[in-house]
């Protein structure tokens, strides 16, 4: 299996704090990869770098989606280099990404995400939430919209139909025309995942999807994550604290502690790894070395 996302020597510095130090790992296409670690280990920082919400201090992040390689640093807009002076094409692309680049390019490249604290459009209906996620595929011609042309109506109705398909899968059809802010917490979590899927990503990054869910809901969520791979053919990247769920669904685990990768491997390997046990249970450093 080929890698769909490679992270090479990712370093992130906030002022004097080194949040991530040379983090490197790969995500295989079609896998469910989990990122775990104690609180403050830097998991969400890795996520924010991958999804383009933070600009990495150094390191290469490459997405291999939609049959091409996308450098996440490049689409966020980089500062000018000396060789831009005699490479006009490179210079032009840099200016283009400086003006029109940004976080949204990562999503367009094929990576969607959800958030640790749910980020929905609370005053819009559930269907509209899903329609907004399809914004880039809709008929956005201003005149077509104002005169309500046939092509425009078709494009709108298609987006509604797509929304209902996903609502069916995520068992939200009955709440389709309610405001997103009125939904229960568990429903909001599901809606956020459905909305991410609406952008047709190849990789979906879930930031603590089980936070705040009860055991039954967590079980349903585990099934849903497996379904993302089997039915939607997506690669899943996951941050999660619920170890039971992580061990059950993921086939590759990366463990972070203090901004460094301390272990990588299958769930069985991770369970036996003394460094991981030490990081979670807090054993003395010399004991680990021994």
């Amino acid at each position: 299996m080929s890698n769909i996302l490679t992270i090479d020597k990712l370093t992130m510095r906030f002022g004097g704090i080194l949040a991530l130090d040379n983090v490197s790992f790969e995500v295989k296409k079609g896998s469910i990869t989990a990122l775990i670690g104690p609180n403050g280990a830097g998991k969400t920082t890795v996520f924010n770098c991958i999804t383009g919400f933070y600009k990495a201090t150094s390191g290469d992040l490459t997405l291999h989606t939609r049959d091409q390689a996308t450098s996440i640093n490049k689409v966020l807009g980089q500062s000018f280099q000396w060789d831009d002076f005699y490479k006009p094409r490179q210079f032009a692309s840099r200016i283009f990404y400086k003006m029109f680049g940004g976080t949204h390019r990562v999503n367009i490249a094929g990576l969607a995400r959800t958030f640790q604290n749910i980020q929905l459009f609370n005053d819009l209906t559930v269907v509209e939430n899903l329609q907004i996620a399809q914004h880039n595929t809709l008929n956005k011609n201003l005149l077509a919209g104002v005169f309500d042309t046939k092509a425009y109506k078709l494009s709108e109705q298609r987006s509604v139909d797509r929304a209902y398909e996903l609502l069916e899968v995520f068992q939200l059809t009955a709440d389709a025309n309610r405001l997103a802010g009125e939904l229960s917490y568990g429903q909001q979590r599901r809606l956020e995942i459905a909305r991410a899927i609406c952008t047709n990503p190849e990789v979906i990054a879930l930031d603590e999807p089980a936070a705040g869910l009860n055991p039954n809901e967590t079980e349903a969520l585990a099934k849903m994550i497996q379904m993302l791979r089997t039915e939607f053919k997506m690669t899943v990247l996951l941050i999660e604290h619920d170890m039971g769920m992580v061990m059950k669904v993921s086939d590759f685990i990366v463990v972070l502690d203090h901004g460094e990768v301390i272990a990588k491997g299958s769930p069985e390997e991770i369970l036996k790894n003394p460094k991981v046990i030490a990081a979670y249970l807090g054993v003395d450093d010399d004991e680990v070395a021994a």
């Binding site: 008929n139 919209g145 991410a196």
Partner: peptide, 23 residues
């Protein structure tokens, strides 16, 4: 229309908009 909806979405939550591929 999609444009008006995008405006409202932006008013509601800019972070979510960026994560959904909207400039």
């Amino acid at each position: 229309m999609p444009l008006g909806r995008a405006w409202e979405a932006l008013r509601e939550n800019e972070i979510a908009c960026r994560s959904l591929g909207m400039n």
